[in-house]
Amino acid sequence: MDISAFLLFWAAIFTSNILLTNFLGMCSYLSVSKEVESSLGLGIAVTFVLVFTTGLNWLVYRYLLVPLGIEYLQYIVFIIVIAAFVQLLELLIERYAPALYYTLGIFLPLITVNCAIFGVSLFMVIRDYNFVQSLAYGLGSGLGWLLAILMLAGIRSKLREKMVPAGLRGAGISLIITGIMALAFIGFSGIAPIQ
């Protein structure tokens, strides 16, 4: 795939936002988007983990799974790598950077099973990215996810004083808002398409 890493990075944020075009990573997106502050923390944690796990999974895939001819096990292996990495990262941050732990570390257990993170690793394989492209795509996707959850958290904090029909309160209205945001993001799609 000969698309420049730089372009891929921007495309991952805007034109193919992992959340707004693929609807991946919805659970934590819906549950932690009540406050801007915690959304920011979670978004940064997702970005951080995405970059590292995408890189790690790329190495595992290229130098372990492909030579051994077991690419079909990528699903299981990727999940194990992500889960182990997130655990390890949490332990490290908690021990050595308590301040960082309280702003970022506590979100890590919530994103062990975030499908956006798994999804990016799988896209990276399907689209045949090289190492640098994968990192750029991971970083872009993370920032894109951060952007999406921040927007929703902003809207939801405004919504708190508004009258929302009882049946739509909570996840219902959040999904509708997400849908409208996704429509708006389609506007970017012609600029730099990635498949």
């Binding site: 372990l64 077991i70 299981i76 292996v77 194990i80 790598v81 182990a84 390890l88």
Partner: peptide, 14 residues
């Protein structure tokens, strides 16, 4: 065996 190996190494690390 490979899968078990990968999981094992990560588990030990953890």
């Amino acid at each position: 065996a490979v899968l078990a190996g990968i999981s094992g190494v990560l588990a030990i690390l953890l």
